[in-house]
Design a protein around this nucleic acid. Structure first.
Lengths: 228, 228
DNA sequence: TCAAAAGTGTTTGCAATACACCCATGC
DNA sequence: GCATGGGTGTATTGCAAACACTTTTGA
């Protein structure tokens, strides 16, 4: 087993982390602190250890590089063009993750010199095939969010309805009619209205809601299909 | 580079091949001709060479193991539980493929002793995590077929409408109303009626149709969304 | 009292559903 | 002539879209 340490590692993990701030969908990038592409903004990534699952590797790397933990994460797939990485062949397995606004206070780990949110229409140059990966993750997010209630992982636990609407508007890039959106969502019976109201807003304060996970799982078993 | 040959290969590719025969959705399995699990029915798979892309590896393995080539193929994702393969850690990248009835005449390659179609509710015991992989591929097929016209890759180029309906019924496991299904499909304007009719059937022969790829791509650019 | 967002009501038209029905053909 | 699937017609219902409207609150 000693020899294993000499093996040139051909497998990495990269993460596309989405966040929702100021009514915009954003991506978290880190400034690379290792070669190649030292100093470039890139997707957080790293190599898989022989003793961990891919999911574990992905969580670990996210934690080490950005300080974020305990978030929603899903595999996007493997990217393996022969020349995607310079010098040697590295296949990468990509995960995309969703973080809530409060969940992340910029706090890069020791392996990254800096981390920052970027708007999707204002991305820096990305190294390797990271742009392609990022766009694939975005496409996956868009198609998944339509029929699975994963969008709630981008909002705080308590949120007003308009924020949910703005989230979907940001992801799809289109606008919804407020009354109709409201009715559509409420008819699903997946939101629990709280006794709490919005605070500190310069207008009538909205009721806060909470996503009802248990009810969603029960309904799903009965054939219910979430769709926005 | 000589040393590369001594590296214990940690990366494999497996394929889930779907077919549609006798109005049933089926999976193509091969009888393994190598250890471990010699002689067991399993998903066709193999190791990736250092000089090929993952897609290329997948196509090559399919061709070598089953004789099928030039089919619709899409990546499902990577499976990497530490103990999914005995003795050593092998991460596998899985593709699912769709073949047309005429495209495959059972003709296993040199590395497989036998290949055969299996119905989904009558599967043999599968080795490793192949059952889990197969079910994941099935779930992916079901969710993808809903909003992308990939189902046509399971039918001959020319097909009667009822066959298309039976395909969707087999995939979803539900029945559709014939007139309504017909109208829904026809309204999309994606099928070209041919001058040809069904032959050798003991009843009125149906018009054959052909999927209009070009029109689909054009419509897609304009925001059209296929949905069944 | 005004701006801004919360929240309700109502009309309209299209599309999914359900089902009745006639047509063509081989046996 | 009957079984089998091919193919059409139509009433009903529900829901999405569009938009007019009232309510509440902070500045």
């Amino acid at each position: 087993m000693k020899n294993l340490e000499n093996i040139i590692e051909p497998l990495s993990v990269d993460c596309v982390i989405f966040g929702f701030e100021e009514a915009r969908l954003k991506v978290l990038l880190i400034k690379r602190s290792i070669e190649p592409e030292f100093g470039t903004w890139a997707l957080p990534g790293g190599f898989i250890k022989y003793t961990e699952n891919i999911e574990e590797a992905s969580s670990r790397i996210l934690r080490e590089r950005t300080g974020v933990h305990n978030l929603y994460m899903e595999q996007l797939g493997a990217f393996g063009e022969i020349d995607r990485f310079p010098e040697r062949r590295v296949i990468t397995i990509v995960y995309y993750a969703l973080v809530k606004p409060g969940q992340y206070n910029i706090n890069p780990g020791p392996d990254a010199s800096d981390a920052s949110w970027f708007e999707l229409n204002n991305l820096p140059r990305l190294p390797f095939d990271h742009k392609k990966i990022l766009l694939a993750a975005l496409a996956r997010l868009r198609s998944t969010v339509k029929y699975k209630p994963i969008g709630f992982n981008l909002l705080n636990d308590k949120f007003p309805l308009l924020q949910l609407q703005e989230l979907y508007e940001a992801i799809y890039g289109i606008e919804f009619d407020k009354p109709n959106f409201r009715r559509k969502i409420m008819k699903m019976n997946l939101l629990i209205p709280l006794d709490e109201k919005q605070k500190g807003v310069p207008h009538r304060s909205a009721t806060l809601y909470k996503f009802d996970k248990e009810r969603y799982y029960k309904l799903t078993e009965k054939g219910f299909v979430f769709e926005i």
